[in-house]
Amino acid sequence: MEFSWDLVINAIVTGVVLGGFYASVAIGVTIAFGMLDIVNIAHPAFMIAGAYLAFWGSEKFGFNPFVSMAVFAPCGYLFGRAFYRAYHFFFERRGDESIQGLAFFFGILFIVEIGVVLIFGVDYRSISEPYLESTIGIGFVSVPWRMLVPFLVGLTMLGSINLYLSRTFTGRTILAVSQDVEALRLIGANPIHAKEVAFGIAVATAIIAGVLLIIIQPVEPSITREYIGRAFAICVLGGIASIPGTLVASLILGVAEALTTTFYGPSWSPAVSFGLLLLTLIFRPAGIFGR
């Protein structure tokens, strides 16, 4: 593609908007991996489950995406809490987190992906809402609503989670879990309970991100893999446990991908996140916000 500033600016705007959505995917990894030290590589599988739930809700009951979020995110929260209890019982408690724990999440990722294939097949699925098809344009820059809605929802999610973590007792306990478990016991907070709630929230965000995903584009089951890379790239680049870091890293990734897609074609975009992840691990494992 020939270079032009119009294209660059368009790509940057698209990238920023895309980045807002990526933040909604990555926030759950930031919570689970960064704050709770649970390497949940199945996070994108929960996201794809959310996307297919939205599809199913729309086909079966005529749910619009927002109704889907309102109905399925709480289900995701409860499921996440139960899931964490099982994980804690089988792995954390007996100190076997490393090999077996990683393999466990990898297995879950695989089960969900194949499960979706068995139920819905490998074809692309989408939902259509008339208002999502229209576009907002300022000058030569135009952004479709199907991108803008996920961007806005993503930012709202990050903001509310940030508020929750800094303003509530459980929230602050969650933040403290990553620092010092002993100190928590002394002030009478239960770290296991805090982790359970936090994991529930992480899964709920994955479900919401899934609904946002199917607003943006038609989905198919193997999409999970691209998002493992994106989510962990953002999480690591953002400094692993930092919410502002997650936001900034999401925007960086979004813009980098949009520029790559514009100038080199979409087939290169998966390499952007993984390349960024590898580069971060090699040169700056503490992330951009690290010391």
Partner: peptide, 27 residues
């Protein structure tokens, strides 16, 4: 490049490696 870091980073990097290689081959 990654084995000096915590083990999980190696794991995540291997996942990344596979996708980067796949993208190279696809192109």
């Amino acid at each position: 490049l990654t084995l000096r870091l915590r083990g999980v980073f190696f794991s995540i990097a291997t996942l990344a490696l596979a996708i980067v290689l796949q993208t190279l081959i696809v192109n």
